[in-house]
Each structure stands twice: as structure tokens, then as C-alpha cells.
Amino acid sequence: MKRSDEFYIGYQKEVGPGTKKLLKRFIWITVLILLTGAAVFGFFQRPAVNSTFDFGNPTQVSGVYHESPYPMLRVPLAENEFKEIVLLGFGKSGPNPFLKDLRERKGDLNGKQLTIEGQLIYYNGRTLLEIDDSQKVMVSGTGAYEQPKSMGTRTLEGEIIDPKCYFGVMKPGYGKIHRSCAALCILGGVPPVLVTKEENNREVYFLLTDVKGNPIHQDILPYIGQPSRLTGQVKELGEWRIMQIDVSQIEKLKKESSIY
């Protein structure tokens, strides 16, 4: 068993020339692996969408509150121009905990004119508002709001997401990696939304309710974050659509999501 007589002892200073040479080579190869690794893992990430969360930059928004069936604000932009803003709460929660005080004092809030200071979330023509403090919601009168218009029954393929993350808070805010977060958000009161893609790459968004039009949260959790096929009555409400579905009829599709 022939071997060179170099012998490395960690606590002694001397290192043999052969060992030194090999170590140098090892270090350079390791650096090369690190650089290549950073390049590969850094470069091959899917481009994030230009969704926005105005974190730390609140805006005051006024409009007519309505639950159709999720809490929304019909915000007048100009004469005959409105925006239907979906309301959300802080963290992974819906707006209801932040509207509780107001409901106790003022009763039913439907048709009430509210002014809310919150953080806006927006992407691709849809806007949502995060309320992080019940003190920042004020009632200032009453107003009119529209009822959703029926568009018939449709069957659609897409992915169920939580709109808070999808429209701005997280990137990516969909898919498998984000799935547990979406489940927590929807469990916490954020409305579930179906994202579908039409042939021309246009996304259409459906707020999901049960067949009777009531909010659904817990029951839809097993279907979140994966491609599914849904059938139900579709209604139109401003720029949003509403789909009334029977959760037990949701069909999971064994394929990659088309919204990626």
C-alpha cells in the first residue's frame, strides 16, 4: 500500500504541497458549483406577474357595501362607472372580523355607504381592499347597489385560488407551492375564486358560492390549488362573475394548471 507521506493534522499549521494543490482545486470546483447553482436556480424561475399589494401604503376608498354574497364595495369612479372591490381582512382572513363592531352598532350593512382606509390589492383589472383595523371603517350614508345578472349555466376548467394572494400579496399566489396558504386564506374567510383562461389568453374570475348563493369556505378546501372542472349557474356583477356550484360535483383534473 504505497501512499505519499503527506499527513494532515487539523491543529498543526503545515499542509503538504500535494494536499494544498488538491484543496485549491476542490475549493475552485466548489465555487464553480455554487456559481452554476445560483445561475441555474436563479435564472429558471417563472416570471412573476405584475400584481400589486400596496403594503404599508393605505388608500381611502368610498363606496356602497353589499354582500353578493361576499362583502364588496361598489365604488363610483365617475358618472355611470363603478368598480366592484372585494373586501378582505388582515393576514389570512376575510373582512367579517373587522366589520363586526360596525354591524353591532349599525345593523345590516347592505346598502350603507362606507369609507374604508385599507391597503389595495390589484391585478389585471380586479381590485381588492384589505382592512387591517375595524377603526378604519366609517359609515357615511346609504346608496344603491346592483344585483348580479344571470348568464346561464356553464361548465368551466380552471384553478380555485384565494384572491388575496393571487391578485397581489404573494408571487406566485397559485398552484401547488401556494396551496396550503390558499387553503388557510379561504378557511379564514377570503372568498374562493375560480380562475379560468379563455382561448385568447384572457383570464376570467368567478367568485364561488354554493348552489343557493351562500358563501363557501371549508367545503371547498380539498379542491384548492389544482386544475378542476366546475359546473354551475353563472352571474355577472360588474367586472366579476359569480358561479353557484355544488362542491361535491367538482371534478379534479389530472393535469397541469393552465393558469401557470
Partner: peptide, 10 residues
């Protein structure tokens, strides 16, 4: 072509 970074575009 690309979503506008806007809360409501008039």
C-alpha cells in the same frame, strides 16, 4: 396586452 398596474383604469 399586459395587465395595467392600476386599481381602476378609466
Amino acid at each position: 396586452d399586459t395587465p395595467l398596474k392600476s386599481t381602476a383604469s378609466l
